[in-house]
Design a protein around this nucleic acid. Structure first.
Lengths: 332, 332
DNA sequence: CAGCCATTTGTGACCGGTCACATTCACCGT
DNA sequence: ACGGTGAATGTGACCGGTCACAAATGGCTG
């Protein structure tokens, strides 16, 4: 592997001049630049990311801290970040935190505190991410993906407008004539700007009663269990589900209990995962722009890393997609 | 950030002794080691990954080259690798290659050729991965996830036994009494050890006719189109689908054409994604151990990186999961 | 033509680890 | 008492970039 010294020798200049060309400094004569670029090309030189990180004190590129990489929302956000990073030729690393246990959080924090981690993006939709965010030293250049209106700790925060998404979906159901809308919630809905809040907003606005929330995990199995419970209550005619996978579990539970969707019960999901359009019935859902969120995160992280941090929080809007799983309630 | 020199001063030893403790060399007196560890603890010292990578010539940790991070098989393989990497305290990076265009392949190859990429895992299920694998210089420590029996170019290769998986699924359908099994194939089935081959094996073994294969893309929309075509042919009673998402699209197409699953047509998927158990009808599928595959990849990559490469190819076995989407063919 | 300034280029040190080799010291056998 | 041996530790150089500063070059003014 040739180094800048080799390139310098080949081009008949000093290594510092090569460095200047690499960082396209204006203080280089055009002919010199051309000569250096030719030498770079000829030798197949590529600058070493490790050396740069060591010298600069921080790597370019970003590392994402997340509790999950497979669930649609997380995976798609990651994808958005990766695309944006790749477009700028930067590296993306991933560090998963599976629990909020202090030891594991500390490990993750130590990990991203290292210079070679570069800019850090913490996905703080859940207790693991939030714990990492709180434990992160101030000198680590980081931005956070959070629930909107989550308490801001001086970090740049980026969020999907989940409150509006939930409100839109709930309003859609009320407008179809349902007396109220039940809700099966996933673990990450807590905050004041979250889905739960949006759901309550719309119910209050529509003058509807606010039923008890059914919490469930990320797994479809617990969604199925929640669905069985709701299926047993005859007055339930509309269910807002925490995401599309949850909706699938609930739908199956209703089916197994002999209830038709949307004839007896309407359901709405969140996220618009690829399969939802092809489910039977095709799922009405709120599409969230996770990829756009990821891109925004990347750019915010790079800004933070290079010191041009503009601490303007970003809010990415959702859009309701109406399909077959919602209809007016059955006539009694 | 304290360096080993600071630790050395605090412990009253030389920096080299600190380095020895960090790499647990046996050439250190126990008391000295204790003193150094105490100083490390006291100062909150963490070794710099960048400095290590620069000095060593290669980073520890791995970088994965893949064409996709969201599709279930890819995402779960990545997850398996990340878990294994985290268990050893190592970093994992991701580099996506979206097309097999020479320029993009070259960029990716350059990227992972850098010392800070560490060990490299190439997911070579598709043309993008294969192109990267072929362009990768020999001095890059890499392993490949491939289709079984893909031409081996001296790299350690790890694979799922897709041929067996496809054969198991096809045999299951034949044993139910279907005259033959149609096949909707995803883009990555080509090789001699792939799904296509397994499907042909089982048909040949069962003395069944080999129908024309319908190719489709990764998107459910094209699966739906393929499903509509098959729905129009009355003699089709059993369909092997390239993966579970494809199966969902095919199922919807059959439904829209007025065909019942499994009453009129049986379908089988691949992968056993989480939703398949809760689809209606619950999908019969072949579960693939992607996470196990990912773990195996990581360990092979580390072995390659540290020079203890054992070039034994690994073959991860599948398992058939029978649910509701398969049944005997309708009586004429 | 000296003097000054701006532009372009070069030199030395440094980032934080590791390697190869030198040194110190205690203990052994003869 | 003395050289030999092995274990424990220390020293200098190096990996490949970047920074701060020095020096050479050239054009202009007075």
């Amino acid at each position: 592997m040739p180094s800048i010294r080799d390139v310098a020798a080949a081009a008949g200049v000093s290594y510092q001049t090569v460095s200047r060309v690499l960082n396209d400094s204006p203080r280089v004569r055009p002919e010199t630049r051309t000569a250096v670029l030719a030498a770079i090309e000829r030798l197949g030189f590529r600058p070493s990311r490790a050396a740069r990180a060591l010298s600069l004190g921080r790597a370019r590129g970003i590392t994402v801290v997340t509790s999950n990489t497979v669930l649609y929302g997380y995976a798609t956000t990651l994808q958005g970040m990766e695309e944006a990073a790749r477009a700028e030729g930067l590296a993306m690393g991933i560090r998963v935190v599976e629990s909020a246990a202090p030891a594991e959080v500390k490990q993750a924090v130590d990990y991203v505190s290292d210079a070679s981690a570069g800019g850090v993006v913490v996905i703080a939709w859940d207790p693991m991410g939030i714990a990492v965010l709180e434990a992160l030293p101030d000198d680590v250049p980081a931005v956070a993906v959070v629930e909107p209106a989550a308490p801001d700790r001086g970090r740049v925060a980026i969020a999907l407008d989940e409150r509006r998404a939930a409100a839109d979906a709930t309003r859609h159901l009320l407008e179809l004539g349902h007396r109220t809308v039940h809700h099966v919630a996933i673990p990450s809905e807590g905050g004041p700007g979250g889905r739960l809040a949006g759901w309550r907003d719309a119910l209050a606005q529509g003058g509807a009663e606010v039923p008890e929330v059914l919490g469930c995990g990320w797994d479809i199995k617990s969604a199925y269990a929640a669905g069985r419970r709701l299926a047993a209550e005859p007055e339930v005619t509309a269910i807002l589900c925490g995401n599309d996978d949850i909706a699938q579990g609930v739908r199956r539970a209703l089916y197994d209990a002999g209830k038709d969707v949307p004839g007896d019960v309407s359901i709405v999901g969140f996220d618009d995962i690829p399969g939802s359009a092809y489910a039977t019935p095709a799922l009405t859902t709120v599409r969230m722009d996770f990829a756009g969120l990821g891109r925004a995160c990347f750019h915010a992280a790079v800004a933070e890393l290079t010191g041009q941090a503009q601490p303007e929080p970003v809010l990415v809007p959702p859009s309701l997609v109406v399909r077959e799983s919602t209809a007016p309630p059955p006539r009694p």
